[in-house]
Amino acid sequence: MKVIDDGVIKYDRSNFSPCDGLAASEFQNLEYWRKKLYQMNLIGEYPEAKVGFGNMSVVQDYSEFTECSHPQFVITGTQTGKYSDLDGTHYTRVLDYEVDRLKIKMMGSIEASSEALTHAAIYAANSNIKAVFHIHSNEIWLQMLADGSDKTCASIPYGTVEMAHATMKCISNKDAGVFCMHGHEDGIVIYGRSLEEAGELTNKLYKKYVQSELQVSL
């Protein structure tokens, strides 16, 4: 069975405030894109290991709950990849964070995705970025590595301070783009100035590496 390096929360979980599910207005635009990615099998669950993969977030103003010096956001909750549709109980507010201390302040009826620290690092590094998608695809991941695409170091695991710093280096001063997580098998990150831009970049990746491969095999 394939060894899955995913799903385990590594950030400090002590600042989680349980509450009722989020209102639809907080996540419905994000859910629109999540459904598309789920249907493309870029978000889901590894069936043998029963471990979910893929997570998504979008910048959201939560200053009514906590004042924060960097962008706040809403993100899919931990281990929600297996569900075809999410509701307010599957999303979490990220109110504040300290990347170098692995600290995340969050509020929801579920804890934030195990990759929340990577999302936080991207938003903290560039306030022009408004949406982050973390997908899984072995086909895309392998071909991006072969193509020499932007990537993090193979020795850096997900959910760590080192990955957060590597992520910041990957995006550099770019407001939109993609990179693969060399040390996190199948993991790819897409970021953009809007959900629509991140979605279009994801579609381009899929058409380039997955659909073209299907056409060749036919």
Rank of each mutant, 00 (worst) to 15 (best):
L218V: 13
V58Y: 06
L117D: 00
E139S: 14
D150E: 13
G7S: 08
V161S: 01
D96G: 09
P71S: 09
Y38R: 05
S14E: 15
A154D: 11
I135F: 03
E31I: 06
L30R: 04
C180F: 04
V161A: 00
G159L: 05
F179T: 02
G81E: 03
A23I: 10
S149F: 04
V178S: 03
D87V: 11
D6Q: 13
E64C: 10
V74Q: 00
A116Q: 00
K207E: 12
M163K: 00
L195H: 02
C170M: 03
K10N: 15
K204Q: 09
V8P: 03
A154P: 15
S172Q: 15
Y32V: 12
I75N: 00
T92F: 12
K36G: 07
H165I: 00
P71Y: 06
E162K: 03
N55V: 09
R193A: 06
N126R: 08
I135E: 02
G199V: 03
G177Y: 03
I135D: 01
V189F: 01
S63Q: 12
A24M: 15
T118F: 05
G52I: 02
I171M: 05
H134E: 07
H182K: 12
G183H: 02
E200L: 13
V178Q: 02
D12N: 12
A23L: 12
I188M: 06
D6T: 09
A124C: 11
S17E: 15
R101E: 14
Q39N: 15
Y209F: 14
I43G: 01
S84R: 08
R13E: 15
T78L: 06
S127L: 07
S69K: 14
L37Q: 03
L95F: 11
E111K: 11
